[in-house]
Each structure stands twice: as structure tokens, then as C-alpha cells.
Design a protein around this nucleic acid. Structure first.
Length: 257
DNA sequence: TAGGCCATCTGGTCCT
DNA sequence: AGGACCAGATGGCCTA
């Protein structure tokens, strides 16, 4: 299967037809011309230049590869590189599909750098939500003993958060109570959402993202103004939780875009 | 028109 | 030796 025939390029400027003409492109582009100019002895062009630049020197002792062989080699290398980049772009598209930004024909496709930055911030936000859920679970089950017993049964669950973090729980609790959630409901939502996690990531509306994607790009955790509090949902907003040290540290590295 | 984004080509380096 | 990976260079397309 030739990847060149199945190009996934999203831009019309991706000239697949160059595949058939890559050698011609090579022999006519500026880099090649510069290279040839440096080794030029006369003003001949075209075939003579191709022969010289493909290794036609008289003094060389190594057996010179045939012009066609060089051309075939370049075609192969270029094709592999194109396939590699196409695979990379496919992976990038796959990442875009699971990112919480508005999908649709009217929405401009995220650039590669934006996709990566958004993905990073999205992961940070989900991690923050997970930490908050762990704290809530610890609060519900009345202390570290119960949580530790559960942690023993489920090693992926870490012990309860430090008391410094617990001090914020009444606020978070009352906030979520205000919108009708209960900790048990929160746990239920968490478990159900985790079960669906692998192939159905939370959508933007599910997570309450109503700010433009630039909000996530610039400021992953300052979501207070744009975040909606859903009943039973882990809330990463700055009202409901302190910034984890890891994410706050990473936040200092936040992007300029 | 400048700047951003992208695809492609290319040569170098590293790995198997 | 061949392939994967990477970064630089180049040119095209699009938008503000």
C-alpha cells in the first residue's frame, strides 16, 4: 500500500503530483542550484548539470551511482518522508478529534502547535479534576482510614489530600450543593464517566467549556469566569479547588499563544 | 502585503 | 546498508 496515493493532506497546496516529479523538483530547486553553482565549471545547464551534480566528477575514485539510481533513491527517501509526515498529521488529526473545542465546518482547524498546547492544558485540567474527585471521595468516606482501606483494594486511588486542601472542601461542597449535586452523585458521575473515558472523552459542552479555545490555550486553570458548575461533576474551577503545585508550576510555563 | 501555517525536499545523525 | 528521525530551507496558500 502506497501512502502517496492515500494522502491525508488537508491543504490543497499539498501537491501529491510532486511525487512523480520530485526528482525534477530536486534538480530545479534553489538548494540544488546553489549546490551546483558551487561546483560549476561552465555555464552548461540541464542534463550536463544533472550529471555533474549527481556525482560526475572525473577525479573521484568511488564508483559513481547511476543518475537513475540516485533519482530512484531520492524518490524512495522522499516518499518515506512524506509517508512519515502524513502519519504524523493523521495522529495530529486524531488528537484534534478528542480535543474539547467546537467541531464543525465553520470552525477553523487548530494548528499543530495549538493542538499540542491545547492537549497539554486539557490533560492538566483533567488531572486537576481527578485530584478534586479524590479529595471529595476522601471527604465522603470520612477520613483517611476508610480511603486507605479502599486504596488498598484499588491501588490507583491515592490517599486523601492533605488537610491544607481539605480546608477548601466546605466551599466546594456548598457550591456543588448549590447546583444540586451530592458527593455520592459526584462519585457516580465519576465512575460512569471514567467507564466511558477511553473512547468517549468529555465533550466541550459536557465539561462546561463556553469560552473560546484560546482560554484553554492561554490559561488552563483560570476557568472561574467561564466554567459552569454541573451537578455531580468534578469541577476544576479555581473556586472549587486550589491549584495543584504541579499544575501551578507548569502553569508558569504557560504558552504565549 | 506581511506574517502564519503548512507540505515538501534535503542532508545529517542515530539505530537496527 | 537501510530506515527512522530531525531540522533547515523553500515556496505556496490564506488571512488580517
Amino acid at each position: 500500500m502506497d501512502s502517496d496515493s492515500g494522502s491525508v493532506c488537508s491543504r490543497s497546496s499539498s501537491p501529491d503530483l510532486v511525487v512523480d516529479d520530485s526528482a525534477g523538483s530536486f534538480f530545479s530547486n534553489k538548494m540544488f542550484q546553489t549546490y551546483c553553482r558551487e561546483n560549476r565549471e561552465d555555464n552548461e545547464a540541464g542534463q550536463g548539470r544533472m550529471q555533474r551534480c549527481s556525482g560526475g566528477g572525473k577525479t573521484k575514485t568511488r564508483p559513481e551511482p547511476n543518475k537513475d539510481e540516485v533519482q530512484d533513491l531520492r524518490l524512495k527517501v522522499n516518499s518515506r518522508e512524506r509517508k512519515r509526515m502524513h502519519d504524523l498529521n493523521q495522529a495530529m488529526d486524531g488528537l484534534r478529534e478528542v480535543m474539547p473545542y467546537a467541531h464543525g465546518p465553520s470552525v477553523r482547524k487548530l494548528s499543530k502547535i495549538s493542538t499540542l498546547l491545547l492537549a497539554r492544558n486539557y490533560i492538566l485540567m483533567l488531572s486537576s479534576s481527578l485530584e478534586e474527585m479524590k479529595k471529595l471521595v476522601g471527604d465522603v468516606y470520612g477520613g483517611s482510614a476508610a480511603v486507605q482501606s479502599r486504596t488498598a483494594a484499588h491501588p490507583t486511588i491515592t490517599p486523601a489530600a492533605p488537610t491544607a486542601h481539605l480546608s477548601l472542601h466546605p466551599l466546594a461542597h456548598s457550591l456543588h450543593s448549590l447546583v444540586g449535586s451530592t458527593p455520592s452523585a459526584a462519585l457516580q458521575h465519576h465512575t460512569t464517566s471514567t467507564a466511558a473515558a477511553p473512547h468517549s472523552p468529555p465533550s466541550a459542552s459536557f465539561l462546561g467549556f463556553h469560552a473560546p479555545v484560546q482560554g484553554l490555550l492561554k490559561d488552563p486553570l483560570h476557568l472561574t469566569s467561564s466554567y459552569r458548575h454541573f451537578p455531580g461533576m468534578p469541577c476544576p474551577c479555581s473556586l472549587c479547588q486550589p491549584l495543584p503545585t504541579t499544575t501551578s508550576t507548569l502553569h508558569n510555563l504557560s504558552m504565549t499563544k
